[in-house]
Write a protein that binds this DNA or RNA. Structure first.
Lengths: 165, 165
DNA sequence: TATTGTTATACTCTATAACTATA
DNA sequence: TATAGTTATAGAGTATAACAATA
């Protein structure tokens, strides 16, 4: 029962005890902003970082990429264009379907996303290091539980196939 | 010690136990995405929602607004233009400084941000409701602790004045 | 006919630089 | 001179609609 739900976390106002919703909102903005800042150090936007991120263990078609990123295929064309211009990804014609184009991470792209990823991991770890070890463990356990419960609640199919649909 | 730090939370891959960093990252994307989706239902972007959010308890100048949102003043001009065109905010000339312009929430703007805020609160509460009550309390406590520790670590001045600097 | 990807177009969001009006 | 705000311009990111090539 928060009287003023914080859509925008007020950075300078952190009372002793936040409501769960406010705490989650502020923490989410903090983590999201951290990734944004670290990516920007490498001239990457969040969406460019996500693009490289999903390509780390996939070589999807443009269409599959659109589904993975939740974007229209025309948006992905521009996104990949700009990443390709920087030499971070490559387009490879599909041999199986001559309409299709496979998108690949280049070595430069892989190196870049690894750097951002490592920096992010380090920064968040440092932040979590501010907590007593027991809290950190409890937080980890509860967050896993929450994500699992939410996934189940949304009916997420853990074996959903990219090619399906 | 995660072998593959998740810059991009893979939505379909939620193992039993996430590393604290991965859990935090995935949870943050989930909460951020929730706000984005709810705002979009009212044709608001995240940044427009933030704009309305910071105006709920302030009537800042354009300059102060730029600092609050972390944007260049020219970006804020456009942001406020579009919100004003929709009747969500109003520009009021400052009487104290005839160069300055104060930005106000209109009744429509206040109503809209309240709706989004309420929906967000409800949605996140529902998600948190998936947790046992004890976990929810522990999560709340730990998140508050983490945010406070981080703020202290960053040397945040809780009494920072808008007009200062 | 249906699907894959691109192009044309329009809009939001962002920043830099130049400008006007005030201080 | 310095500050507040706008404008001009450029670019990223997004979507819709229309299109060409292939299935």
């Amino acid at each position: 029962m928060t009287s003023r739900p914080a859509v925008v976390p007020a950075p300078a106002a952190i009372p002793d005890r936040l409501s769960p919703v406010d705490g989650l909102a502020q923490l989410s903005f903090l983590v999201y902003g951290t990734l944004e800042r670290l990516a920007a150090e490498h001239d990457l936007s969040i969406v460019q970082t996500r693009l490289l991120g999903v390509l780390r263990d996939r070589k999807p078609t443009m269409n599959q990429l659109a589904k993975l990123l939740g974007l229209d295929k025309s948006s992905v064309t521009g996104l990949v264009d700009r990443a390709q211009r920087r030499g971070l990804v490559a387009r490879v014609p599909s041999t199986a379907d001559r309409r299709a184009v496979l998108v690949n991470l280049t070595d430069d792209g892989r190196s870049l996303v690894s750097q951002v990823s490592t920096r992010f991991e380090a920064e968040v770890s440092t932040m979590l290091g501010l907590l007593p070890s027991r809290d950190r463990q409890a937080l980890s356990r509860i967050m896993s539980r929450l994500l699992a419960a939410h996934a189940a609640d949304e009916g997420v199919d853990l074996f959903a196939d990219l090619d399906a649909g």
